[in-house]
Write a protein that binds this DNA or RNA. Structure first.
Lengths: 210, 210
DNA sequence: ACCTGAACACCGTTCAAGT
DNA sequence: ACCTGAACACCGTTCAAGT
Protein backbone atom coordinates (compact mmCIF):
# COMPACT_ATOMS: atom_id res chain seq x y z
CA UNK A 1 0.00 0.00 0.00
CA UNK A 2 2.83 2.40 0.77
CA UNK A 3 5.41 0.76 -1.42
CA UNK A 4 4.61 1.90 -4.97
CA UNK A 5 6.22 5.36 -4.70
CA UNK A 6 5.46 6.51 -8.25
CA UNK A 7 8.61 8.55 -8.73
CA UNK A 8 9.04 11.20 -11.34
CA UNK A 9 10.04 10.62 -14.91
CA UNK A 10 13.38 9.04 -15.47
CA UNK A 11 13.58 6.53 -12.72
CA UNK A 12 11.27 4.05 -11.10
CA UNK A 13 8.20 3.78 -13.28
CA UNK A 14 9.73 3.83 -16.73
CA UNK A 15 8.04 0.56 -17.51
CA UNK A 16 4.56 1.88 -16.78
CA UNK A 17 5.32 5.12 -18.57
CA UNK A 18 6.27 3.19 -21.70
CA UNK A 19 3.11 1.13 -21.63
CA UNK A 20 1.03 4.25 -21.11
CA UNK A 21 2.78 6.03 -23.97
CA UNK A 22 2.21 3.00 -26.17
CA UNK A 23 -1.51 2.90 -25.46
CA UNK A 24 -1.85 6.58 -26.24
CA UNK A 25 0.20 6.38 -29.42
CA UNK A 26 -1.80 3.36 -30.50
CA UNK A 27 -5.22 4.98 -30.40
CA UNK A 28 -4.02 8.44 -31.40
CA UNK A 29 -1.59 7.77 -34.24
CA UNK A 30 -2.30 4.18 -35.13
CA UNK A 31 -0.09 1.13 -34.93
CA UNK A 32 2.52 2.56 -37.28
CA UNK A 33 3.58 4.94 -34.51
CA UNK A 34 4.36 2.04 -32.23
CA UNK A 35 8.14 1.91 -32.50
CA UNK A 36 10.44 1.49 -29.56
CA UNK A 37 12.42 4.55 -30.59
CA UNK A 38 9.23 6.56 -30.86
CA UNK A 39 8.03 5.50 -27.44
CA UNK A 40 11.41 6.17 -25.87
CA UNK A 41 11.33 9.61 -27.42
CA UNK A 42 7.83 10.25 -26.07
CA UNK A 43 8.91 9.31 -22.56
CA UNK A 44 12.15 11.24 -22.83
CA UNK A 45 14.62 8.40 -22.61
CA UNK A 46 17.22 6.84 -24.85
CA UNK A 47 16.07 4.10 -27.23
CA UNK A 48 18.09 1.41 -25.53
CA UNK A 49 16.68 2.13 -22.07
CA UNK A 50 13.62 0.15 -23.10
CA UNK A 51 15.63 -3.04 -22.88
CA UNK A 52 16.01 -2.67 -19.12
CA UNK A 53 12.25 -3.29 -18.80
CA UNK A 54 11.28 -5.42 -21.78
CA UNK A 55 13.13 -8.23 -23.46
CA UNK A 56 12.31 -6.82 -26.88
CA UNK A 57 9.51 -5.23 -28.86
CA UNK A 58 7.37 -8.35 -28.88
CA UNK A 59 7.55 -8.41 -25.12
CA UNK A 60 6.20 -4.87 -24.93
CA UNK A 61 3.50 -5.70 -27.46
CA UNK A 62 2.48 -8.74 -25.42
CA UNK A 63 2.16 -6.55 -22.34
CA UNK A 64 -0.11 -4.17 -24.21
CA UNK A 65 -2.11 -7.06 -25.62
CA UNK A 66 -2.53 -8.44 -22.11
CA UNK A 67 -3.80 -5.08 -20.96
CA UNK A 68 -6.27 -5.23 -23.83
CA UNK A 69 -7.76 -8.53 -22.76
CA UNK A 70 -7.99 -7.24 -19.21
CA UNK A 71 -9.84 -4.18 -20.44
CA UNK A 72 -12.13 -6.40 -22.47
CA UNK A 73 -12.98 -8.55 -19.48
CA UNK A 74 -13.50 -5.44 -17.33
CA UNK A 75 -15.89 -3.94 -19.85
CA UNK A 76 -17.94 -7.12 -20.01
CA UNK A 77 -17.98 -7.36 -16.23
CA UNK A 78 -19.04 -3.74 -15.95
CA UNK A 79 -22.03 -4.31 -18.21
CA UNK A 80 -23.02 -7.46 -16.41
CA UNK A 81 -22.96 -5.51 -13.15
CA UNK A 82 -25.26 -2.84 -14.50
CA UNK A 83 -27.97 -5.40 -15.17
CA UNK A 84 -27.92 -7.72 -12.17
CA UNK A 85 -31.32 -9.28 -12.78
CA UNK A 86 -30.60 -10.53 -16.27
CA UNK A 87 -31.31 -14.19 -16.91
CA UNK A 88 -28.72 -16.54 -18.36
CA UNK A 89 -29.46 -15.89 -22.00
CA UNK A 90 -29.63 -12.15 -21.47
CA UNK A 91 -26.26 -12.31 -19.74
CA UNK A 92 -24.80 -13.93 -22.82
CA UNK A 93 -26.21 -11.15 -24.96
CA UNK A 94 -24.75 -8.54 -22.62
CA UNK A 95 -21.34 -10.17 -22.98
CA UNK A 96 -21.64 -10.11 -26.75
CA UNK A 97 -22.52 -6.44 -26.73
CA UNK A 98 -19.71 -5.63 -24.33
CA UNK A 99 -17.26 -7.63 -26.41
CA UNK A 100 -18.02 -6.03 -29.74
CA UNK A 101 -18.44 -2.64 -28.07
CA UNK A 102 -14.94 -2.81 -26.68
CA UNK A 103 -13.45 -4.19 -29.88
CA UNK A 104 -15.06 -1.55 -32.06
CA UNK A 105 -14.10 1.37 -29.83
CA UNK A 106 -10.45 0.27 -29.59
CA UNK A 107 -9.74 -0.92 -33.12
CA UNK A 108 -5.96 -0.56 -33.07
CA UNK A 109 -5.61 -2.08 -29.65
CA UNK A 110 -7.97 -4.91 -30.50
CA UNK A 111 -6.07 -5.74 -33.66
CA UNK A 112 -2.82 -5.87 -31.74
CA UNK A 113 -4.32 -8.38 -29.31
CA UNK A 114 -4.59 -10.84 -32.17
CA UNK A 115 -1.44 -9.75 -33.95
CA UNK A 116 0.88 -12.14 -35.70
CA UNK A 117 3.53 -11.61 -33.09
CA UNK A 118 1.23 -12.94 -30.40
CA UNK A 119 0.73 -16.32 -32.01
CA UNK A 120 3.37 -17.92 -29.80
CA UNK A 121 1.40 -17.29 -26.68
CA UNK A 122 3.40 -19.86 -24.81
CA UNK A 123 6.11 -17.24 -24.56
CA UNK A 124 3.71 -14.89 -22.80
CA UNK A 125 1.80 -16.72 -20.10
CA UNK A 126 0.21 -13.56 -18.71
CA UNK A 127 -1.25 -12.86 -22.13
CA UNK A 128 -2.52 -16.42 -22.43
CA UNK A 129 -4.12 -16.13 -19.02
CA UNK A 130 -5.83 -12.82 -19.77
CA UNK A 131 -7.17 -14.15 -23.06
CA UNK A 132 -8.36 -17.35 -21.39
CA UNK A 133 -10.16 -15.31 -18.76
CA UNK A 134 -12.09 -13.33 -21.36
CA UNK A 135 -13.03 -16.54 -23.12
CA UNK A 136 -13.94 -18.09 -19.80
CA UNK A 137 -16.52 -15.41 -19.14
CA UNK A 138 -18.17 -16.25 -22.41
CA UNK A 139 -18.03 -19.97 -21.82
CA UNK A 140 -19.48 -19.56 -18.35
CA UNK A 141 -22.41 -17.58 -19.69
CA UNK A 142 -23.00 -20.19 -22.37
CA UNK A 143 -22.90 -22.96 -19.80
CA UNK A 144 -25.35 -21.04 -17.63
CA UNK A 145 -27.76 -20.70 -20.51
CA UNK A 146 -27.48 -24.41 -21.27
CA UNK A 147 -28.14 -25.25 -17.63
CA UNK A 148 -31.15 -22.97 -17.62
CA UNK A 149 -32.52 -24.76 -20.64
CA UNK A 150 -32.24 -21.62 -22.72
CA UNK A 151 -29.71 -23.16 -25.06
CA UNK A 152 -29.67 -26.68 -26.50
CA UNK A 153 -27.61 -29.34 -24.78
CA UNK A 154 -24.64 -29.21 -27.12
CA UNK A 155 -20.97 -29.23 -26.07
CA UNK A 156 -20.35 -25.90 -24.38
CA UNK A 157 -16.97 -25.49 -26.08
CA UNK A 158 -18.63 -25.70 -29.48
CA UNK A 159 -21.37 -23.20 -28.63
CA UNK A 160 -18.81 -20.88 -27.07
CA UNK A 161 -16.52 -21.03 -30.06
CA UNK A 162 -19.45 -20.28 -32.29
CA UNK A 163 -20.41 -17.25 -30.22
CA UNK A 164 -16.82 -16.06 -30.01
CA UNK A 165 -16.30 -16.48 -33.75
CA UNK A 166 -19.41 -14.47 -34.42
CA UNK A 167 -18.59 -11.45 -32.28
CA UNK A 168 -14.90 -11.59 -33.18
CA UNK A 169 -15.62 -11.85 -36.87
CA UNK A 170 -18.18 -9.10 -36.76
CA UNK A 171 -15.86 -6.79 -34.83
CA UNK A 172 -12.85 -7.32 -37.06
CA UNK A 173 -14.83 -7.05 -40.29
CA UNK A 174 -16.27 -3.81 -38.99
CA UNK A 175 -12.90 -2.48 -37.87
CA UNK A 176 -11.34 -3.40 -41.20
CA UNK A 177 -13.94 -1.43 -43.09
CA UNK A 178 -15.51 -4.48 -44.67
CA UNK A 179 -19.06 -3.75 -43.65
CA UNK A 180 -19.56 -0.33 -45.20
CA UNK A 181 -22.19 0.20 -47.89
CA UNK A 182 -24.38 -2.50 -46.50
CA UNK A 183 -27.71 -1.66 -44.98
CA UNK A 184 -26.83 -2.62 -41.47
CA UNK A 185 -26.94 -0.95 -38.11
CA UNK A 186 -23.58 0.54 -37.27
CA UNK A 187 -21.22 0.41 -34.35
CA UNK A 188 -22.57 -0.81 -31.07
CA UNK A 189 -26.08 -1.10 -32.46
CA UNK A 190 -24.68 -3.61 -34.89
CA UNK A 191 -23.21 -5.62 -32.07
CA UNK A 192 -26.52 -5.53 -30.29
CA UNK A 193 -28.48 -6.72 -33.27
CA UNK A 194 -26.02 -9.48 -33.89
CA UNK A 195 -25.98 -10.71 -30.38
CA UNK A 196 -29.75 -10.87 -30.47
CA UNK A 197 -29.49 -12.91 -33.63
CA UNK A 198 -27.00 -15.22 -32.05
CA UNK A 199 -29.13 -15.75 -28.99
CA UNK A 200 -32.23 -16.42 -31.02
CA UNK A 201 -30.52 -18.74 -33.44
CA UNK A 202 -28.78 -20.62 -30.67
CA UNK A 203 -32.04 -20.98 -28.82
CA UNK A 204 -33.49 -22.82 -31.78
CA UNK A 205 -30.36 -24.72 -32.54
CA UNK A 206 -30.70 -28.45 -33.03
CA UNK A 207 -27.65 -30.73 -33.28
CA UNK A 208 -26.93 -33.82 -35.34
CA UNK A 209 -28.75 -34.69 -38.54
CA UNK A 210 -25.63 -35.62 -40.48
CA UNK B 1 -3.58 -14.64 -77.14
CA UNK B 2 -0.21 -14.11 -78.81
CA UNK B 3 0.65 -10.85 -77.10
CA UNK B 4 1.85 -11.80 -73.58
CA UNK B 5 5.38 -12.86 -74.58
CA UNK B 6 6.59 -13.78 -71.10
CA UNK B 7 10.15 -12.61 -71.54
CA UNK B 8 13.00 -13.71 -69.34
CA UNK B 9 13.94 -12.23 -66.04
CA UNK B 10 14.99 -8.64 -66.04
CA UNK B 11 12.64 -7.13 -68.54
CA UNK B 12 9.00 -7.45 -69.35
CA UNK B 13 7.39 -9.37 -66.55
CA UNK B 14 9.13 -7.92 -63.53
CA UNK B 15 5.77 -7.02 -62.07
CA UNK B 16 4.50 -10.58 -62.19
CA UNK B 17 7.82 -11.90 -60.93
CA UNK B 18 7.59 -9.63 -57.90
CA UNK B 19 4.05 -10.72 -57.09
CA UNK B 20 5.07 -14.35 -57.46
CA UNK B 21 8.09 -13.88 -55.23
CA UNK B 22 5.90 -12.14 -52.66
CA UNK B 23 3.40 -14.99 -52.57
CA UNK B 24 6.16 -17.53 -52.11
CA UNK B 25 7.93 -15.53 -49.42
CA UNK B 26 4.63 -15.01 -47.65
CA UNK B 27 3.76 -18.66 -47.17
CA UNK B 28 7.33 -19.86 -46.80
CA UNK B 29 8.93 -17.30 -44.49
CA UNK B 30 5.93 -15.46 -43.13
CA UNK B 31 4.91 -11.83 -43.48
CA UNK B 32 8.11 -10.54 -41.88
CA UNK B 33 9.99 -11.51 -45.04
CA UNK B 34 7.76 -9.29 -47.14
CA UNK B 35 10.03 -6.30 -47.67
CA UNK B 36 10.52 -4.58 -50.96
CA UNK B 37 14.27 -4.93 -50.67
CA UNK B 38 13.89 -8.63 -49.95
CA UNK B 39 11.63 -9.21 -52.92
CA UNK B 40 13.87 -7.21 -55.21
CA UNK B 41 16.79 -9.32 -54.06
CA UNK B 42 14.84 -12.53 -54.70
CA UNK B 43 14.06 -11.46 -58.24
CA UNK B 44 17.58 -10.18 -58.86
CA UNK B 45 16.87 -6.52 -59.31
CA UNK B 46 17.74 -3.29 -57.50
CA UNK B 47 15.43 -2.19 -54.68
CA UNK B 48 14.27 0.90 -56.48
CA UNK B 49 13.23 -0.99 -59.62
CA UNK B 50 10.06 -1.95 -57.78
CA UNK B 51 8.83 1.61 -58.07
CA UNK B 52 8.53 1.29 -61.85
CA UNK B 53 5.70 -1.21 -61.32
CA UNK B 54 4.12 -0.29 -58.00
CA UNK B 55 3.48 3.09 -56.48
CA UNK B 56 4.78 1.89 -53.12
CA UNK B 57 4.68 -1.05 -50.77
CA UNK B 58 0.99 -0.68 -49.98
CA UNK B 59 0.28 -0.88 -53.69
CA UNK B 60 2.11 -4.20 -53.94
CA UNK B 61 0.33 -5.47 -50.83
CA UNK B 62 -3.02 -4.50 -52.28
CA UNK B 63 -2.20 -6.45 -55.43
CA UNK B 64 -1.39 -9.51 -53.37
CA UNK B 65 -4.53 -9.07 -51.31
CA UNK B 66 -6.56 -8.84 -54.49
CA UNK B 67 -5.02 -12.07 -55.68
CA UNK B 68 -6.05 -13.58 -52.35
CA UNK B 69 -9.71 -12.72 -52.75
CA UNK B 70 -9.61 -14.07 -56.28
CA UNK B 71 -8.14 -17.32 -54.99
CA UNK B 72 -10.81 -17.45 -52.32
CA UNK B 73 -13.59 -17.02 -54.84
CA UNK B 74 -12.01 -19.59 -57.12
CA UNK B 75 -11.79 -22.14 -54.33
CA UNK B 76 -15.43 -21.64 -53.42
CA UNK B 77 -16.43 -21.90 -57.07
CA UNK B 78 -14.39 -25.06 -57.48
CA UNK B 79 -16.17 -26.75 -54.59
CA UNK B 80 -19.57 -25.68 -55.84
CA UNK B 81 -18.72 -27.20 -59.20
CA UNK B 82 -17.80 -30.52 -57.68
CA UNK B 83 -21.28 -30.89 -56.21
CA UNK B 84 -23.64 -29.67 -58.88
CA UNK B 85 -26.79 -31.21 -57.42
CA UNK B 86 -26.56 -29.48 -54.05
CA UNK B 87 -29.65 -27.65 -52.94
CA UNK B 88 -29.56 -24.01 -51.81
CA UNK B 89 -28.75 -24.64 -48.18
CA UNK B 90 -26.10 -27.22 -49.04
CA UNK B 91 -24.53 -24.72 -51.42
CA UNK B 92 -24.24 -22.25 -48.58
CA UNK B 93 -22.52 -24.86 -46.47
CA UNK B 94 -20.13 -25.67 -49.31
CA UNK B 95 -19.22 -22.01 -49.52
CA UNK B 96 -18.55 -21.88 -45.81
CA UNK B 97 -16.31 -24.92 -45.99
CA UNK B 98 -14.48 -23.50 -48.99
CA UNK B 99 -14.06 -20.17 -47.30
CA UNK B 100 -12.62 -21.45 -44.07
CA UNK B 101 -10.64 -24.09 -45.92
CA UNK B 102 -8.91 -21.45 -48.00
CA UNK B 103 -8.37 -19.12 -45.05
CA UNK B 104 -6.89 -21.82 -42.87
CA UNK B 105 -4.55 -23.18 -45.52
CA UNK B 106 -3.21 -19.72 -46.42
CA UNK B 107 -2.93 -18.05 -43.00
CA UNK B 108 -0.35 -15.41 -43.88
CA UNK B 109 -2.01 -14.51 -47.14
CA UNK B 110 -5.44 -14.41 -45.53
CA UNK B 111 -4.24 -12.12 -42.78
CA UNK B 112 -2.76 -9.76 -45.31
CA UNK B 113 -6.10 -9.54 -47.11
CA UNK B 114 -7.55 -7.88 -44.04
CA UNK B 115 -4.41 -5.99 -43.09
CA UNK B 116 -4.45 -2.54 -41.63
CA UNK B 117 -2.96 -1.11 -44.78
CA UNK B 118 -5.94 -2.28 -46.77
CA UNK B 119 -8.49 -0.34 -44.77
CA UNK B 120 -8.56 2.47 -47.31
CA UNK B 121 -9.93 0.26 -49.99
CA UNK B 122 -11.09 3.25 -51.98
CA UNK B 123 -7.48 3.60 -53.06
CA UNK B 124 -7.53 0.08 -54.48
CA UNK B 125 -10.65 -0.44 -56.55
CA UNK B 126 -9.51 -3.83 -57.87
CA UNK B 127 -9.15 -5.04 -54.30
CA UNK B 128 -12.57 -3.72 -53.39
CA UNK B 129 -14.05 -5.46 -56.40
CA UNK B 130 -12.41 -8.80 -55.64
CA UNK B 131 -13.58 -8.64 -52.02
CA UNK B 132 -17.08 -7.67 -53.09
CA UNK B 133 -17.16 -10.61 -55.46
CA UNK B 134 -16.32 -13.09 -52.72
CA UNK B 135 -18.96 -11.58 -50.50
CA UNK B 136 -21.40 -11.60 -53.40
CA UNK B 137 -21.06 -15.36 -53.75
CA UNK B 138 -22.04 -15.76 -50.14
CA UNK B 139 -24.92 -13.33 -50.39
CA UNK B 140 -26.21 -15.04 -53.49
CA UNK B 141 -26.21 -18.41 -51.75
CA UNK B 142 -28.01 -16.92 -48.77
CA UNK B 143 -30.60 -15.32 -51.02
CA UNK B 144 -31.08 -18.63 -52.78
CA UNK B 145 -31.71 -20.41 -49.52
CA UNK B 146 -34.19 -17.74 -48.47
CA UNK B 147 -35.98 -18.07 -51.80
CA UNK B 148 -36.10 -21.83 -51.40
CA UNK B 149 -37.69 -21.41 -48.00
CA UNK B 150 -34.66 -23.01 -46.34
CA UNK B 151 -33.80 -19.83 -44.45
CA UNK B 152 -36.15 -17.43 -42.70
CA UNK B 153 -37.28 -14.33 -44.58
CA UNK B 154 -34.88 -11.91 -42.93
CA UNK B 155 -32.87 -9.20 -44.73
CA UNK B 156 -30.31 -11.04 -46.82
CA UNK B 157 -27.56 -8.56 -45.91
CA UNK B 158 -28.03 -9.35 -42.25
CA UNK B 159 -27.98 -13.11 -42.72
CA UNK B 160 -24.98 -12.80 -45.02
CA UNK B 161 -23.06 -10.66 -42.58
CA UNK B 162 -23.80 -13.15 -39.85
CA UNK B 163 -22.54 -16.03 -41.96
CA UNK B 164 -19.46 -14.07 -43.04
CA UNK B 165 -18.67 -13.05 -39.48
CA UNK B 166 -18.91 -16.63 -38.36
CA UNK B 167 -16.55 -18.14 -40.92
CA UNK B 168 -14.20 -15.16 -40.81
CA UNK B 169 -14.09 -15.17 -37.04
CA UNK B 170 -13.57 -18.90 -36.89
CA UNK B 171 -10.81 -18.80 -39.48
CA UNK B 172 -8.89 -15.93 -37.89
CA UNK B 173 -9.22 -17.30 -34.36
CA UNK B 174 -7.90 -20.60 -35.65
CA UNK B 175 -5.07 -19.00 -37.57
CA UNK B 176 -4.11 -16.88 -34.57
CA UNK B 177 -3.80 -19.94 -32.39
CA UNK B 178 -6.74 -19.04 -30.21
CA UNK B 179 -8.57 -22.33 -30.54
CA UNK B 180 -5.97 -24.75 -29.29
CA UNK B 181 -6.61 -26.84 -26.19
CA UNK B 182 -10.29 -26.92 -26.78
CA UNK B 183 -12.05 -30.13 -27.65
CA UNK B 184 -12.98 -29.17 -31.16
CA UNK B 185 -12.51 -30.67 -34.56
CA UNK B 186 -9.46 -29.19 -36.22
CA UNK B 187 -8.71 -27.61 -39.54
CA UNK B 188 -11.17 -28.12 -42.31
CA UNK B 189 -13.27 -30.46 -40.22
CA UNK B 190 -13.80 -27.55 -37.88
CA UNK B 191 -15.03 -25.42 -40.75
CA UNK B 192 -17.36 -28.18 -41.80
CA UNK B 193 -18.85 -28.59 -38.35
CA UNK B 194 -19.30 -24.89 -37.99
CA UNK B 195 -20.94 -24.44 -41.29
CA UNK B 196 -23.37 -27.17 -40.39
CA UNK B 197 -24.08 -25.35 -37.16
CA UNK B 198 -24.65 -22.14 -39.01
CA UNK B 199 -27.02 -23.71 -41.45
CA UNK B 200 -28.98 -25.44 -38.74
CA UNK B 201 -29.18 -22.40 -36.54
CA UNK B 202 -30.12 -20.14 -39.41
CA UNK B 203 -32.81 -22.56 -40.46
CA UNK B 204 -34.48 -22.20 -37.13
CA UNK B 205 -33.85 -18.53 -36.85
CA UNK B 206 -36.82 -16.34 -35.96
CA UNK B 207 -36.61 -12.54 -36.19
CA UNK B 208 -38.13 -9.76 -34.09
CA UNK B 209 -39.25 -10.17 -30.50
CA UNK B 210 -37.75 -6.86 -29.34
C1' DA C 1 20.38 -1.01 -10.86
C1' DC C 2 19.42 1.89 -14.45
C1' DC C 3 20.53 4.54 -18.38
C1' DT C 4 23.51 6.40 -22.54
C1' DG C 5 26.16 6.40 -27.12
C1' DA C 6 28.04 4.33 -30.86
C1' DA C 7 27.42 0.86 -34.05
C1' DC C 8 25.21 -2.86 -37.10
C1' DA C 9 22.10 -4.64 -40.21
C1' DC C 10 18.10 -3.73 -41.79
C1' DC C 11 13.75 -0.81 -43.67
C1' DG C 12 10.71 2.42 -47.41
C1' DT C 13 11.31 6.09 -50.40
C1' DT C 14 13.31 9.99 -53.33
C1' DC C 15 16.18 11.77 -56.77
C1' DA C 16 19.55 12.21 -60.16
C1' DA C 17 21.54 9.37 -63.52
C1' DG C 18 22.46 5.83 -66.72
C1' DT C 19 21.05 2.70 -71.19
C1' DA D 1 10.74 2.73 -71.01
C1' DC D 2 13.13 0.51 -67.57
C1' DC D 3 16.66 0.04 -64.24
C1' DT D 4 20.78 1.55 -61.03
C1' DG D 5 23.37 3.99 -57.13
C1' DA D 6 23.74 7.12 -53.66
C1' DA D 7 21.39 9.19 -50.09
C1' DC D 8 17.86 10.20 -46.31
C1' DA D 9 15.24 9.29 -42.44
C1' DC D 10 13.81 5.79 -40.16
C1' DC D 11 13.78 0.82 -37.73
C1' DG D 12 15.15 -3.20 -33.75
C1' DT D 13 18.94 -4.79 -31.33
C1' DT D 14 23.73 -5.47 -29.27
C1' DC D 15 27.56 -4.09 -26.72
C1' DA D 16 30.70 -1.48 -24.17
C1' DA D 17 30.48 2.20 -21.03
C1' DG D 18 29.03 5.48 -17.77
C1' DT D 19 26.76 6.86 -12.79
Amino acid sequence: MNRPAPDSYHHGNLRDALVQAALEALERDGPAALSLRNLARAVGVSPTAVYRHFANKDDLMATIATEGFEGLSAEMQRRLGSEPDADALRRLMILGEGYSGYAMSHPAHYRLMFGRRMVDKDDYPALARAAAHSYGMLEQAVAGAVDAGQLPDVPVALLSTMAWSLVHGLSTLHNDGMLTDKQLPRGEALGETFTRMLALSLRHFAPGKE
